[in-house]
Design a protein around this nucleic acid. Structure first.
Lengths: 126, 126
DNA sequence: TGCAATTTATTAACATATTAAGTAAATTGA
DNA sequence: TCAATTTACTTAATATGTTAATAAATTGCA
């Protein structure tokens, strides 16, 4: 992910922070547990990331009225603007990588990674 | 790598510390820079890992006589004993994963990961 | 109803990843 | 020979990964 990281470092964001922002931009407001699933992060990591994104003014938080343990995280206008400004470049990097290794091999890679995850999960009683 | 990590946590080692020990056990004494290459670690990370392994008495360090910038890291007898005691279990986990996804698919996965690395390196002027 | 078990999120503690900067030793080249 | 550069390693600062502990709210069942 070197190229994408280079792009993000100019904006002062890490890859994980960027991933959280993208999830919120794509799927709308949601609680931290769901963000963690979609962004492939553990909750303790996400807690720190949300604190930083809130400090930067890229997200807002509010309590959930139905379940007071939960909160609702939402991307801010500043966050949306940031996504809009840099998403094209991000997608271009991904497309370039896919093109260089070939679309078919790219799909095959994703399949294999899922297979390994499933295999390890079988051996791991978590 | 969940299963291997579970095994190592019982010994008080992390995956990276284990990897460094294995490299030293397989290829003999060498300098930190070479260890970093073989174990896929950056030197700052390796510096701390070597400190911890030395604290545990699993490695020894001595200055290099030819080039005083370098040092020579060597696995200790305790380190060798630890490898000998747990290598079979470690290899068994790997073989199990390979068996579950299939040897051919396992090879294909390694090839694809190398392809991605090469593609990203091309786009990344580092 | 009352309480144990579960869920959600945070905090803490330790380990690694990454980048940048710093230091010492060795090499290079005029 | 000596200033400039390169190499080897360390230190520092910031961020995430991972596990465990904890607090608060909710759930479910005796």
């Amino acid at each position: 992910m070197g190229p994408i990281r280079d792009m993000l470092s100019g904006v002062g964001l890490t890859e994980q922070q960027w991933r959280v922002l993208r999830v919120l931009d794509e799927d709308g407001p949601m609680e931290p547990t769901r963000i963690a699933e979609l962004a492939c992060l553990l909750l303790p990591s996400l807690t720190r990331i949300l604190q930083k994104l809130a400090d930067k003014g890229l997200i807002t938080r509010r309590p959930d009225n139905d379940d007071k343990r939960k909160q609702v995280i939402q991307i801010s206008e500043a966050g949306e603007a940031l996504i809009e400004a840099h998403l094209p470049a991000s997608l271009a990097v991904l497309e370039q990588t896919k093109a260089q290794i070939g679309a078919e091999r790219y799909e095959a890679l994703l399949d294999l990674l899922n297979a390994v995850e499933a295999a390890d999960a079988k051996g791991d009683p978590d």
